[in-house]
Design a protein around this nucleic acid. Structure first.
Lengths: 338, 338
DNA sequence: GCACAATGCTTTTCCGGTTCATAAACCGGA
DNA sequence: TCCGGTTTATGAACCGGAAAAGCATTGTGC
């Protein structure tokens, strides 16, 4: 019932606690013979290092933190976070490091969580997501001295290492593709304007449209919900001249937009082309299936975790670039037919 | 930079470590005056109890575990887990207990995680989800002596307390509703047959159809993906006589089914009624919006967490019943028109 | 006025590992 | 045989907090 400790092992093996510690951690100080004997006994007793004791002396918590700062009802909708989390864990599993997850309503609460986690020694570092402009979290983790990496564009990461994929390039690809199909008026339904990556996409969108010689390129900002996506779509489609293609910042809004278009008597893709940012099973099951920008989100999470582990270990981040997102044409985009 | 310890506080306050410990934990043994002084100093220094040290003596980890055992690509799709997690955390926040999350590919890995977590003293207990028949996890946590609660039907929970909502009742309500609309042939697209709650719904479905005097009530099992939902729908709609209503075990399959029906020239709801189990933003944005069975998933998670905390504290589970799921009629169900 | 209890704080021990200083044993070479 | 150096092992300190035991001081009852 009671968990065995190294003292138990030491007694059984007839050696000291210290020897057991050396043996089980693969450090020099014991003979190979003794090491093997101690290992066997530990195995037999089913010994596991007590995390608390280990952190207490070693000051490693063997866990990293991830705080998601969005109301529950937004979180559930997007596969993004779950995929990110599962990628993070794939990476952590190898180093038997655990993941502490917390969902909070606002940025202030998130900072409080970091303070608590770090103060309590519960985590060795954290992954920051959903950066916004002049994000107070960056300064705070810096102040705390807590290792952290940003999953997002480096421009807001300050001194922190960032893991990110170049969205501007894909945005240009998307716009180029739509322009090649003959679309001259492309609109965008964007996410929360406070988020840095929304701004970056906004900018890339404007730049891409200009580069492709497209005229008006209206942008509507939303909170990522289907309701707002529908509202934005209605607004965009009511304008004259109305856009012939819309790029959505997530899949749920793209689906909502699809419904609104059909409601308004616009066939997709004949009357309106739709592109969803971030692919998901959802994009595949609606009719027509949605053309989407896809990226390997689990790999993204894994990369962020790997980088954080390096930072915690005092090494330099590998600086490897993220595999770029790709445009995946499906049935919701077609040449402009007028 | 360095985190303050109770020794630092003791030095500043001119008292012993023991007194500080008593003062900060609200236990008798120090005067109110001294307690206030110590508290003020702790506050000023920004002291937080070191979790490792605390667990080492108190043997509480102040964390609970949740293992999700589904491939990442299934997980991301369903809002269920994220909502569950956010509910769990709402409850945990109050007791400053943390959540350890792990996503694993299979049940064997899940058991290994429990062994590790418990052996390392990383968690005080766990919430078990997605129970299947004769689930090995129940026996394992029992063997380990790790506190646990089952989020699911008590029939598979063995000696463990279970938090669950009575799905049979809602299933009867759904079937009664469809029968009242004139449907005589209702089909069901179910989830993984190995999962206990799938079996329970299967049974409730059969019983409900029998009670309502409905004839054939075919059931197709799937893996919850849209692709399988589409396949099952095609299969069901190709049979003769074909069902006039289908109940889906999740929202993504319901949407896929909706697309398939429309593809096959069946208007929804005129030619086919659709009910989705578990509501989500997704169900609201498609056209027609889906009639759904809705339940308060965050509340469910919160209840599970609350129960686990009670078990850990050595108290009895409160045994409060879960608020029942409700049928939420929307546009995807209509009277049978022939 | 004395036994006894409550109060308020200190000292000590403990939790389960890690790590350092130290020492014994061993080794080859002079 | 003695010596410097390496290998192998030991004992004890330590990490930060919890809690039991110890010890004055003050208060209470009779």
């Amino acid at each position: 019932m009671k968990r065995p400790t190294i003292a138990d092992i030491a007694r059984r093996a007839g050696v000291s606690k210290g020897a057991v510690s050396y043996a089980l951690n693969g450090r020099p100080g014991v003979s190979e013979e003794t090491r093997a004997r101690i290992r066997a006994i530990a195995q037999e007793l089913g010994w596991r290092p007590n995390l608390a004791a280990r952190s207490l002396s070693g000051s490693r918590a063997d866990a990293i933190g991830l705080v998601l700062c969005r109301p529950a009802r937004f979180l559930g909708v997007e596969p993004f976070f779950m995929e990110l989390v599962s990628g993070v864990e794939d990476e952590l599993a190898a180093s038997s490091c655990a993941l502490m997850l917390q969902v909070v309503p606002d940025r202030q609460a998130e900072i409080a969580v970091y303070r608590r986690w770090w103060g309590e020694g519960r985590v060795d570092g954290a992954i920051l997501v959903d950066l916004c402009a002049a994000d107070p979290r960056v300064a705070e983790v810096e102040r705390l001295g807590m290792p952290a990496v940003v999953a997002g564009h480096p421009s807001g990461a300050g001194p922190l290492p960032a893991v990110w994929s170049d969205e501007a390039a894909v945005m240009a690809e998307v716009i180029g593709y739509l322009a090649a199909l003959g679309h001259r008026r492309v609109a965008r339904v964007a996410g929360l304007p406070a988020l840095l990556h929304t701004r970056i996409r906004d900018e890339a969108f404007a730049r891409g449209c200009a580069a492709a010689g497209l005229g008006g390129h209206p942008v509507e900002h939303t909170d990522y919900t289907g309701e707002e996506g529908a509202r934005a779509t209605r607004l965009l489609l009511s304008a004259r001249p109305r856009p012939t293609a819309i790029v959505y910042d997530n899949d749920i809004m793209a689906v909502a937009g699809l419904s609104v278009a059909q409601e308004m008597g616009l066939a997709v893709p004949a009357g309106l082309s739709i592109v969803a940012w971030d692919d998901s099973p959802l994009a595949r099951v609606v009719r027509p299936p949605l053309t989407a920008v896809t990226r390997d989100v689990p790999a993204y999470g894994a990369h962020a975790a790997r980088t954080l582990l390096r930072v915690i270990a005092g090494e330099l981040p590998d600086g490897a670039p993220e595999p770029p997102a790709r445009l995946l044409p499906r049935g919701s985009t077609a040449p402009l037919s007028l």
